[in-house]
Write a protein that binds this DNA or RNA. Structure first.
Lengths: 201, 201
DNA sequence: ACTACTTTGTAGCCCATGGCAACATTCTCT
DNA sequence: AGAGAATGTTGCCATGGGCTACAAAGTAGT
């Protein structure tokens, strides 16, 4: 444990990272609305204006969280796929459950990620999203190459699958149906996806 | 136009409705974050504490907006279905485009509606959502009765379709793809839905 | 009508937050 | 060593949410 009497150097060293970390925790525990820069500063033990050196305003911090969220999502999907074997349906199931799992375990973060109120200069969030989006498109393309899926623009099909998962997560996170329905909904979506894209024989 | 010198009675009469109306406009123009009770009060010409008589706090107002949003969505879907004729695929297309149209034209409102941070006592929002959800389930059931769709829990299938539409809207509203992709994504989703639920012959 | 009660709006306060500016300390590079 | 850039601090202001006490207007019982 850390010594509270420990002399903190004037320059924190990695304040930005520490702030993001604290913000992530606060996001989980109390939601984005309750996230205050001054709170974070206090929590980290730094003056109330210090965060401004790293995030020009509150929204900039939220955008950074969103950006990091897409990176986390990307690695979550990649690890799921890495452990999913070769069978195409199994890979799809791996990716989809990984997505919805991530999305329901990080509800507030997901809301931030898909928030429409990004700052004008929030291209970074959009760019960060391209990684997982592309990953999904690659998966689709692989399925098409294997003959498991019919032809069609992989990016578009991937987006629709992504959208379905995101929508399911929204419905769960919004408490419109209980979390116990999650698996059934995902399975239904996957079956429809596989069946709806089956090659015409 | 209204006379600014007009004597306003001490009791406004329908302040709640007027506030909601102003809130709806503000939501459109500046987003939920920028929505302040005091602002609304100013805009409507009442004292800053007046709104509290109708909304116990800010979140209560947001919840009321969300609730009204689901009602609006419901009527949008119903009118679309009413004008969609008898053909089942046409009805599905009518409902889906109506949904995504509503959702992209009211981006901030949709975010509120699906926000996971409803107050504990926000059962009203959930209840309001049941109308459009049920409508979709009815549509599915109709398709099954007509033999256009295979068997399966209509509610679950409807939820997945709903989720897909909501996800597509999120992706558009979040600026991850341009609005010009909307129609193509919806059409892809509809085709997959119809094809993925086609009865086994 | 008169009175009592309720509803709805007002005025004024406190406090937290975001955002700014001026100043301080440390780092880095030459 | 010294200049300039980074980074952190202190102090200020305006705004907004939420509270309490008060005022005006409706409503009901008599």
């Amino acid at each position: 444990m850390s010594d509270p009497n420990e002399e903190r150097p004037y320059h924190h060293g990695n304040l930005r990272a520490v702030l993001l970390d604290a913000a992530d925790r606060c996001l989980r525990e109390r939601g984005a609305d309750q996230l205050s820069l001054r709170d974070l500063a206090r929590e980290v033990g730094v003056s109330h204006a210090a965060p401004r050196r790293h995030f020009s305003d509150r929204q900039a911090l939220l955008d950074a969280l969103a950006e990091s969220g897409f990176a986390q999502l990307d690695t979550a999907l990649r690890t799921a796929l890495a452990g999913a074997g070769e069978d195409f349906p199994a890979r799809v199931r791996g990716a989809t459950t990984a997505y919805t799992r991530f999305a329901t375990e990080n509800a507030a973060l997901l809301e931030l990620m898909y928030s429409s109120k990004h700052r004008p200069g929030a291209t970074r969030v959009i760019e960060a999203a391209e990684a997982p989006f592309g990953l999904m498109a690659d998966l689709i393309e692989q399925g098409q190459d294997e003959g498991a899926l019919r032809a069609g623009d992989p990016e578009r099909i991937g987006l629709v699958l992504f959208a379905t998962l995101q929508g399911i997560a929204s419905i769960i996170n919004g408490n419109f149906v209980g979390p116990d329905m999650l698996d059934a909904l995902v399975e239904t979506a996957v079956e429809q996806f596989l069946s709806g894209n089956r090659p015409v024989e």
